[in-house]
Amino acid sequence: MIEVAIKGKSFGDVQVLGDVRFALHAGETLAILGPSGVGKSTLLRIVAGIDSAYSGHVQAPARRAMVFQDPTLLPWRSALDNLRIVHPDLSEAAAQAMLAKVGLGDRAGAFPGQLSLGQQRRLSLARAFAGRPELLIMDEPFVSLDAATAEEMLSLTETLIGESRPATVFVTHAPGEAARLADRVMHLGGNPAVLSAAPACDRPVSGAGSAPNGGRHGRA
C-alpha cells in the first residue's frame, strides 16, 4: 500500500503543490491528468523519492521503478548493460528475456544512441519492469511518439502492468491513455495545485476493478 500525504511543496517563494493526498493499493493504477507546468512531474518526483524537500510524508515500498519523460538511459552502456547495471541481481538470461519481451531481443549489444526513440522508450520500459517493482511511476511515458509507436508502447505497457501488477501512478496529457490504463483518474490543477476527481469525460469508460473511483482518497 502506497500512501501519499503532501502538505505542500515550494520552489523558493512559489508554492507549487498544495495539499495532495492519495493512497494506492497493490495492482491499482492511478492516472493523473493536468495542464502543463501545474506540478505533475514535481508530484511524481516526490512520490519516487527523488525530491525530499517537501512537507508531508510519503509511504512507499523500496522496490520502485520510474519511466521518465526522456528515456534516461546510460548512453555509454549497451542495452543489456543498461538493465543489468540498474538491476545487479538480474541474470543475463533474465535480462535477455526482458529485452525480447519489449521487442529488443536482437539489440542487446546496441548502445542507446544506436536505437530509435521508440526503441529507447521500450528499453526504459524494460528497465522499469525488470526489477519487478511494487511501485511503478511513469511521467508522460508516451509523449512525443508518433501515433503508431505510442499505441504500440501503450499495449506493451498494458501487458507488462497486467503481468506484474505493481501499484502504478502515471501522469499524462491524454485522457485516452488514462482511460485505457488506469483504474482511477484524478486531476491536478489550481494554484497551488491540488488533486480532485477528474471531470466526467476523463473517467475510464469501462469498469475499473476494485479501486474507489475518483475523489480524494487517503487520510487527513
Binding site: A48, R64, M66, F68, T72, I85, V86, P88, G131
Partner: peptide, 13 residues
Amino acid sequence: PGLDAMAKVYGIS
C-alpha cells in the same frame, strides 16, 4: 540531473 534521478529511484549502489 536526469541520470542522477534515475540512479536514485532505482537505488543504484
